[in-house]
């Protein structure tokens, strides 16, 4: 049932700015195989430097989709084209997924300056599906001014997204926990900008106080901005867009470091992904051996890991 055709045609379509071309290219990358390699090879060399990638993360129900809907509207108002990558969880049992982020963003369905695509996580931890990371290249090659990545609302330990985007925003809502939650490490540390959504609720002020307190003795100039929003009404969205622009500019100073980190994250993630597929057969073999008592899990896994030998390319 593969009628997707030749990736080269799809690339031609993308070059002409055809949205269907981009949509098909995304599917090919998501499904993997030789087409994926060709498309990523093309996209990697096309990367438009002006694209700003904004990550939006936070717990489920925090209002990420609604906030993105309003962010898109604000960026459109400012004359920018916007691509959205919305990741929702896939079912671990059936592999299927109900992708519902679009429901909140349906105002933009008829706007051809906006491209929204929903992704099932397809059993990847860390909030961003393997495909979504690769697809970022396609979005950049297509030349959007702004790309917004919404990641699954896992909550506490969802730090991977920050390596793949330019600016990470963490969306918090009042009523989810006290100061202890604020003090926890993890996702809180990766946020460049904090958003307190549903800030018309009475506990919002307390949350803001706690958040500001949690910055402790950080010097004022490096404290992340805290923006209060009411996404459903659009309150605070323009301020957020301004804060994102400021932050993106500030990030330029560390762009070298950030680029290294991103390459590192990308290579690690894709190596682990490929290894996982490649080694599955051996892991099943080992499982059987350990089950029969022929070896220990530690011994067998070390033996397998020792087989990997990488030689640096010499040119």
């Amino acid at each position: 049932m593969d009628n997707r055709g030749d990736p080269r045609n799809v690339i031609e379509m993308m070059k002409k700015g055809n949205r269907r071309g981009l949509a098909k290219a995304i599917s090919m990358v998501e499904d993997g195989g030789p087409e994926k390699e060709i498309l990523l090879e093309y996209a990697y060399h096309q990367e438009a430097p002006q694209t700003m990638v904004l990550g939006v993360t936070g717990a489920g129900g925090a209002g990420k989709s609604t906030l993105i809907d309003k962010l898109v509207a604000e960026y459109r108002e400012r004359g920018k084209t916007v691509g959205v990558i919305a990741v929702d969880p896939s079912s671990p049992y059936s592999g299927g997924a109900f992708l519902g982020d679009r429901v909140r963003m349906s105002n933009h369905n008829t706007d051809i300056g906006v491209f929204i695509r929903s992704f099932g996580s397809r059993n990847c931890l860390g909030g961003m599906s393997e495909a979504a990371k690769n697809v970022l290249y396609l979005y950049k090659a297509f030349g959007f001014d702004v790309v917004i990545v919404e990641s699954i609302g896992v909550g506490q330990d969802e730090t991977e997204i920050s390596r793949f985007v330019d600016v990470t925003t963490l969306v918090l809502v009042p009523g989810l926990g006290d100061a202890m939650q604020m003090a926890k490490a993890g996702v809180r540390e990766i946020a460049d900008i904090f958003v307190i959504n549903k800030s018309d609720k009475p506990e919002a002020e307390v949350l803001k106080e706690q958040l500001l307190n949690s910055f402790g003795i950080l010097p004022l100039e490096i404290r992340p901005p805290v923006i209060s929003t009411v996404a459903s009404e659009g309150t605070g969205v323009a301020e957020l867009v301004d804060a994102v622009a400021d932050m993106a500019e500030k990030q330029q100073e560390h762009s070298e470091k950030k680029r290294r980190e991103r390459i590192w994250a990308e290579v690690s993630s894709s190596v682990l992904y490929l290894m996982n597929i490649k080694l599955q057969k051996h892991i099943l073999d080992i499982t059987e051996e350990v089950y029969k008592g022929k070896t220990t899990p530690f011994e067998a896994s070390r033996r397998l890991a020792d087989c990997i030998q990488y030689r640096r390319e010499t040119k």
Partner: peptide
Amino acid sequence: NVFRDAGMEVIYTGRFQSPEGIANAAVTED
């Protein structure tokens, strides 16, 4: 839920959509 449980990826548009909006969404979601 039925489609999800059948292993498919199902995207919901929400209610009150225009036909053009549906067509556009179908294209971008491929």
